[in-house]
Amino acid sequence: MKQLLLQVFTWWNGQTMGTRFFTWRNGKRVGEDEMGNVYYEGGTTSFGLPRRWVIYKGYADASKIPTGWHGWMHYRTDVPPSKEDYKPREWQKPHRENQTGTALAYRPPGSLAVPGERPRVTGDYDAWTPGN
């Protein structure tokens, strides 16, 4: 019952009823990533490209899409990672969720969230002051 209410009244928890119906009618399951997100393809976009979408497991956040699936979703490749032996390159970092709004978010020196004073500006820059 809770899942049904979430699908009716929220868009950020998995899929809505409209997405469920569209996926049932038009979607062909392409694969699933290691986080449980499920990828679909079906129909065409207004540009004539195959329509692709993802149904997130849990909270809908675009930063949850891993590297290989990101390339497929954005039409960088026509072969999804589930159909090939996809291996991330050595320079690709492992996936990390978006940390914005959490205690783990990046806070540069001088931001309001970090105690202390902002570092002094160095170099050839002089701040503008009125009357000069």
Rank of each mutant, 00 (worst) to 15 (best):
E34F: 15
I55R: 06
R52L: 02
G36I: 06
S46N: 05
W53K: 02
L49E: 11
V54W: 00
L49T: 13
V54L: 01
A62E: 14
G31D: 02
Y56N: 00
G31C: 02
T45N: 03
Y40S: 00
D33R: 07
R52S: 06
R52E: 03
A60K: 14
A62S: 14
V30K: 04
N37A: 00
V30Q: 06
R51L: 11
E41Q: 15
G42R: 08
E32R: 12
A62P: 04
G48Q: 09
I55P: 00
N37K: 03
Y39S: 05
G48W: 11
A60T: 12
R51V: 09
S46R: 12
A60L: 07
G43H: 11
V30C: 05
Y40E: 00
Y56D: 04
V54G: 02
G43C: 02
P50K: 10
G42V: 07
G31W: 11
E41I: 13
R52P: 01
G48K: 11
T44G: 04
G43W: 09
Y56W: 05
T44M: 14
I55M: 01
Y56V: 00
A60V: 13
E34Y: 15
G58Q: 04
T45E: 03
V38D: 10
Y39A: 01
K57S: 02
F47E: 13
Y40C: 06
D61E: 12
K57A: 04
G58L: 01
G48I: 02
Y39K: 03
G43I: 08
T45Q: 02
L49N: 14
V30N: 01
L49S: 13
E32M: 14
T45G: 05
Y40L: 05
P50L: 08
Y59S: 05
R52C: 01
E34K: 15
D61C: 14
F47D: 15
Y56I: 04
P50C: 04
G43Q: 05
G43V: 06
S46H: 07
Y59V: 01
D33L: 09
W53L: 03
D61T: 13
N37D: 02
E32N: 10
K57M: 07
G36W: 05
V54Y: 04
W53A: 03
E34H: 15
F47T: 11
E41H: 12
W53G: 04
S46E: 10
D61F: 14
G43A: 07
G58R: 07
L49I: 10
K57D: 08
R51E: 08
G42E: 03
E41C: 10
G36C: 01
V38L: 09
M35S: 12
F47S: 15
L49W: 15
M35T: 03
V38I: 15
K57V: 03
R51Q: 09
T45A: 05
A62T: 13
Y39F: 10
G42C: 00
E34I: 13
F47A: 12
R51H: 12
W53E: 02
F47N: 14
A60M: 12
D33M: 07
Y59K: 04
A62Q: 14
D61Y: 12
E32A: 07
F47I: 07
D33F: 07
G36N: 05
G36Y: 09
Y56K: 04
G36F: 09
